[in-house]
Write a protein that binds this DNA or RNA. Structure first.
Length: 585
RNA sequence: GCCCCUGUAGCUCAAUUGGACAGAGCACUGGACUUCUAAUCCAACGGUUACAGGUUCGAGUCCUGUCAGGGGCGCCA
C-alpha cells in the first residue's frame, strides 16, 4: 500500500549515503513497534555493519544511531505525506500523517471490498491433495485436522493468486473394505445406511474388526478377499454400491465443513498402473526383485550415493500385491498428465515424511523433471491428553459427528440464552457456525508442526482466543451498521488526532495483504488465524472506547466507514480460515 | 545406532524469519452493564525462552554439544 513512499524514501537515503561514501547500502523497511503512530522504520545496523566489515573501526550501534541522526537532518523537507522523522536506537523512523494514512487504508478496504487483501503476485497452478479418508471407515478428529488445514491452505493460496485444484485420494480397496463387506453379507445383508452414513458405515466396520479376531471369521474374510481379487461380479457390485454410500457420507461431512473437491482419485484406479510401473522399474534395474523370498524394493541410498538418507523403499509385496508406494507413484504421474502443475502439495501427517521423501526421490530417479515440484505439507497429530494417540481398538477415537453434535448442542444453549427472540432456524444456523468455527480455529491457531492435544473442555471453550470471539466482533460491527442504516457512507477525511483504539484497528487492517502473501508462502493458516484474533480484539477495544452512532456527525461519519472496513477485513480473514461469519449471535 | 519434529508465564500457544521493552488466551485476584449485543472491556499477577558453549553490533530465532518428550527407519497404511 505504500510502495511509492518506500521507493521515494529509499532513493533519498541512497543519495545521502552515497554522499557519505557508502555505496549500495542494505536498506529494508520494518514496522515501528510502538503503537500510536504509523510509520516506516529503517534499521541502520546493517549499513553500519557493512562499514565495520570494510575495515573501518566503528562501534556499530553508535554509528547506526549517528547515521540515523544525520539522515534525519538531511530529510528536513519531508516528501509526500510524512509528518515527521525520528532517529532512535539506530533506527530511522518516518511517521505518516495519521489522518492521511487512516483514510487511505479505510478507503482502500471499502473500495476493494471482499477483494481487499487478494494478491496477484503468485501465479501458477497448484494441486493440493488432502483429506484422503478410507472408505467404509470412520471420520474422526485426526481426519478433521487434515481437512481443515488443507481447506484453509487452498483458500489462502487462491487468495494469494494461485489457481488451486483441490484433490482427494480415497482408500477404497484393501483388507478393511473386505472385512466390511464380509460383515455386511453375514450380519447386515439388505440393510441400507441410516441418515448419518459415515457413522453407520463405521459401526459395521468396527464390528467386523472385532469379529475378525476370531480365526474362523478371519478365514472367511480371507476367502472373500480371494473372490474380490478374482473380480467376482457379485462382490465387485457390492463394493461399488457400498463405496458409494461411504462417498455420500463423506460428502455430508465436506458439505458441513464447506469443502469441495475438484478431482477425486481412487486407490483402485492406480493399483494396476502401479504394478505395471514396478515391472518397468525392475526391467530398468531401478528396482530389485528377489521374490519370492523378499519383496520388490528400491535401494534409494545406493542409487543416490547417500547413506541412511533415503533408505530402502518397498514397492511390491513378495506375493505380488500392492502397497501404498505401488500406488502413490502412478498417482503422482497421473496428476501431472492431467494438469499443468507448477506445484503438487500433499497434506499428510508428519509420520510419513520419510515415505514421501522416498516417493519424491524415486520419481526423480525415474526422470520426471517435475519431481522438484512435489511438496509434503506435514502436520502433526491430534492426540489425547497425556500424549495418548487415539485408537479405535482402545475406543478412544473421537468421531467427527459426535464432536460436532456436542459442540453444536452447547453453542445452541448459549444462543438460546443470549438471543431467545431469534427464530429456531436461525438459532440452529448460528449454533452450527459457532461450533464448527470453534473447532476449526482450534486446529488452525497452532503451528503445523505442533501436536494438537484434544480435550473436550478446550474444544468446547468458546471464550478467549477462539472463533466465537472473532465472530462476535463481526456481529457487533454489523449491528452498528444496521442501526446506522440511512446514513450515507461517504468518503470523508480522518482527523489526525485519532484514538489509540482506532489507530490499532487500522494498523491491523493494513496488514492483511502482507499476511496473505506470507501465509501462502509458508502454507501456514496460523498467521491469518492470529491476525483475525488481533483484529477482533482491536475492534472490541474500539467498540468499548469509541462510540459511533451517538458521536457528533463529523466523527460518526468516519467511524462508520472504519466499522464497515473492519467488518470486511474480519470477514475476509475468517473466510480464509473456512470459518463462517454470522450476522447475529 | 541413524534421521525428523518439539521444548517460551501454572496451563494452551504467539513472536513480522537475526532487530527496538519476548506478547496473547485460559486460570487466579480486583473492577466495569440506565450508553451501538457483557459470547465484551479494564487493571493486577505471572519469564534465567530446557541447559552449556559459540557466531554476531544484536540470538527465543543461526552453529556445536547435553538433557527431556514425540515420531520415523525392507513386504502397515
Amino acid at each position: 500500500m505504500f510502495e511509492k513512499e518506500k521507493s521515494v524514501v529509499k532513493g533519498l537515503i541512497h543519495n545521502f549515503l552515497a554522499g557519505e561514501g557508502i555505496e549500495d547500502p542494505q536498506l529494508e523497511f520494518r514496522q515501528i513497534p510502538f503503537s500510536g503512530e504509523w510509520g516506516l522504520a529503517v534499521p541502520l545496523f546493517p549499513v553500519a555493519a557493512q562499514m565495520a566489515r570494510s575495515g573501518k573501526k566503528v562501534n556499530v550501534p553508535k554509528y547506526a544511531q549517528e547515521l540515523a541522526e544525520k539522515i534525519k537532518t538531511a530529510l528536513s523537507n519531508l516528501p509526500l505525506d510524512f509528518s515527521h522523522v525520528d532517529a532512535v536506537n539506530g533506527y530511522l523512523n518516518l511517521y505518516f500523517s495519521t489522518g492521511v494514512y487512516a483514510r487511505r487504508v479505510v478507503d482502500t478496504v471499502l473500495e476493494q471490498g471482499e477483494q481487499y487483501g487478494r494478491q496477484e503476485v503468485d501465479t501458477g497452478t497448484v494441486m493440493v491433495e488432502y483429506s484422503q479418508p478410507n472408505t467404509h471407515k470412520a471420520f474422526h478428529v485426526g481426519h478433521l485436522r487434515n481437512v481443515i488445514l488443507g481447506g484453509s491452505v487452498c483458500r489462502i493460496l487462491e487468495f494469494a493468486g494461485y489457481k488451486v485444484i483441490r484433490a482427494n485420494y480415497l482408500g477404497d480397496i484393501g483388507l478393511h473394505v473386505v472385512k466390511w463387506m464380509w460383515n455386511y453379507l453375514k450380519n447386515h445383508k439388505g440393510e441400507e445406511p441410516s441418515a448419518n452414513k459415515t457413522h453407520w458405515m463405521n459401526q459395521i466396520y468396527e464390528e467386523a474388526d472385532r469379529l475378525f479376531q476370531d480365526p474362523e471369521n478371519e478365514a472367511e474374510v480371507r476367502a472373500l478377499y480371494a473372490r474380490w481379487n478374482a473380480k467376482d461380479p457379485e462382490i465387485v457390485a457390492l463394493w461399488k454400491k457400498t463405496r458409494q454410500w461411504s462417498l455420500e457420507g463423506f460428502n455430508q461431512i465436506y458439505d458441513q465443513l464447506g469443502e469441495k473437491f475438484d478431482r477425486i482419485y481412487f486407490e483402485s484406479d492406480v493399483e494396476d498402473p502401479g504394478v505395471a510401473l514396478v515391472e518397468q522399474m525392475i526391467e530398468k534395474g531401478i528396482a530389485q526383485d528377489p521374490r519370492p523370498e523378499e519383496p520388490v524394493f528400491i535401494d534409494l541410498d545406493a542409487i543416490a550415493g547417500t547413506e541412511n538418507e533415503y533408505r530402502v523403499l518397498v514397492v511390491l509385496r513378495s506375493d505380488g500385491s500392492s502397497l501404498y508406494a505401488t500406488k502413490d507413484l502412478p498417482l503422482a504421474i497421473k496428476k501431472f498428465e492431467e494438469y499443468d502443475l507448477d506445484q503438487s502439495i500433499y497434506v499428510i501427517d508428519v509420520r510419513q515424511s520419510l515415505y514421501l521423501k522416498q516417493i519424491f526421490k524415486t520419481l526423480e530417479i525415474l526422470g520426471y523433471g517435475w519431481a522438484d515440484k512435489l511438496y509434503h505439507l506435514a502436520y502433526d497429530l491430534v492426540n489425547l491428553p497425556g500424549n495418548v494417540t487415539m485408537s479405535s481398538r482402545e475406543g478412544t477415537v473421537v468421531l467427527f459427528d459426535d464432536l460436532v453434535a456436542e459442540a453444536t448442542r452447547l453453542a445452541r444453549k448459549i444462543v438460546e440464552q443470549k438471543n431467545p427472540e431469534l427464530s429456531e432456524a436461525s438459532k440452529d444456523d448460528i449454533a452450527e457456525d459457532v461450533a464448527l468455527g470453534a473447532l476449526k480455529y482450534t486446529m488452525l491457531s497452532r503451528d503445523n508442526t505442533k501436536v494438537v492435544t484434544f480435550d473436550w473442555d478446550a474444544a468446547l471453550d468458546f471464550n478467549g482466543q477462539a472463533a466465537p470471539y472473532i465472530q462476535y466482533a463481526h456481529v457487533r460491527a454489523g449491528s452498528i451498521l444496521r442501526k446506522a442504516d440511512g446514513l450515507e457512507l461517504q468518503e470523508v477525511d480522518f482527523p489526525s488526532d485519532l484514538e489509540k483504539a482506532e489507530i490499532d484497528l487500522i494498523e491491523l487492517m493494513a496488514r492483511l495483504p502482507v499476511e496473505v502473501t506470507r501465509s501462502a508462502a509458508e502454507y501456514r493458516p496460523l498467521t491469518i488465524a492470529t491476525l483475525a484474533f488481533d483484529l477482533a480484539k482491536a475492534f472490541n477495544d474500539f467498540y468499548n472506547t469509541c462510540h459511533v452512532l451517538n458521536a457528533e456527525p463529523s466523527v460518526r461519519a468516519y467511524r462508520l466507514r472504519l466499522v464497515a472496513a473492519a467488518k470486511q477485513v474480519i470477514a475476509t480473514s475468517l473466510n480464509l480460515l473456512g470459518i463462517k461469519a454470522p450476522k447475529v449471535m
